[in-house]
């Protein structure tokens, strides 16, 4: 039986996640791997918003902030299990995205980019300044997810880094599966149609304002889950997670790899997460690097790394 493009993509991704540890020189790489996966989860959300629906958000880190702080605050104040706190964060992020997106997405043009930028800054300011609740700029501690202990009791002992590598890898697989399902579904076609030609999408009956809100809400949930994973993994969270630079980073990762393709976005997230790790000199110049990458991609490969390379290989093959 021939595998569909969706299933072969997922299989490839699963194989890479499962087999990469063979090549890890030290246990530290499990930690880097899990950071890559968490970033990739957020970026897959950007693929749905930007790659499918053609909308740009510069404030998605705000939703990561909501997801992250939900995991810190809900267990303390509401007595929720951290896993349920992450779900609560996702729901709150989805509702916020709906409330923020609904009035803005009726308008055409770049209103969403500007308004979402404002939203992201607002969230990070609240997180940094409401010291009594959020702990302020120094951040706040996050409860243990508890799953690793359960696994150990069940006879699967994993180190903390190994556990988070596997857990965020599985989250990325699920996130990719959902995004790939969406791509070839009626909703996905409506989103891609409005990206291609908004007027033609309206003509075939797509309620474009609603379709944009749908994409915005779904991608906000992805960002929120990524924020929750950061919080749970680090056992603490700071307002940086909601920061403006984090939003720009997400968009750059998506654009670098190819905003239209899930695999491309994951590649983009991988490269931009690994580069600063691999070349320590970059760490000081991370912002410059992001800007440079963005410019070079826009000038030389509008489609992003993966689609451009694929086209190149196909072109040579013919």
């Amino acid at each position: 039986m021939k595998l569909s493009a969706k299933h072969s993509t997922l299989l490839l991704l699963a194989l890479i996640i499962a087999l990469a540890p063979i090549f890890f020189p030290s246990a530290y790489y499990f930690r880097i791997g899990s950071v890559v996966f968490v970033n990739a989860v957020a970026v897959v959300g950007i693929v749905i918003l930007t790659g499918y629906a053609g909308q740009i958000s510069l404030g998605h880190a705000g939703f990561s902030g909501i997801g992250g702080y939900a995991c810190a605050l809900a267990p303390v104040h509401l007595g929720l299990h951290p896993a349920l706190a992450a779900v609560l964060g996702a729901v709150v992020s989805g509702v916020m995205a709906y409330l923020v997106g609904r009035p803005i997405l009726r308008l055409k043009g770049y209103y969403l980019a500007v308004a979402s930028l404002g939203f992201g800054i607002l969230v990070s300011m609240v997180l940094a300044n409401e010291t009594a609740i959020t702990g302020g700029p120094d951040g706040i501690k996050v409860a243990d997810l508890g799953l690793r202990t359960l696994l150990a009791d069940a006879g699967v002992p994993l180190t903390n880094a190994q556990f988070w590598y596997a857990f965020s890898g599985i989250c990325l697989l699920i996130g990719s599966w959902l995004a790939l399902n969406l791509h070839d579904s009626p909703t996905g076609r409506a989103l891609r149609a409005l990206h291609g030609s908004e007027i033609a999408a309206r003509t075939v009956g797509v309620d474009v304002a609603r379709a944009k809100v749908t994409a915005f809400v779904i991608s906000a949930v992805y960002a929120s889950v990524a924020g929750s994973l950061i919080a749970l993994q680090n056992r603490m969270i700071t307002p940086d997670v909601a920061g403006y630079m984090h939003s720009i980073e997400m968009v750059t990762m998506a654009v670098l790899g190819g905003a239209g393709s899930v695999l491309g976005a994951i590649l983009g997230a991988t490269i931009l997460t690994l580069l600063p790790q691999a070349l320590t000199v970059f760490q000081q110049y991370e912002q410059i690097m992001l800007g440079l990458v963005m410019m070079l991609v826009m000038i030389f490969m509008r489609e992003g790394l993966l689609p451009s390379l694929t086209a190149l290989v196909r072109g040579r093959g013919e």
């Binding site: 399902n181 579904s185 009626p186 909703t187 076609r189 409506a190 149609a193």
Partner: peptide, 12 residues
């Protein structure tokens, strides 16, 4: 679209 659209969760 008008005939094939359905709940977003079903599509996801």
């Amino acid at each position: 679209h008008l005939r094939e659209r359905g709940p977003v969760l079903a599509d996801l």
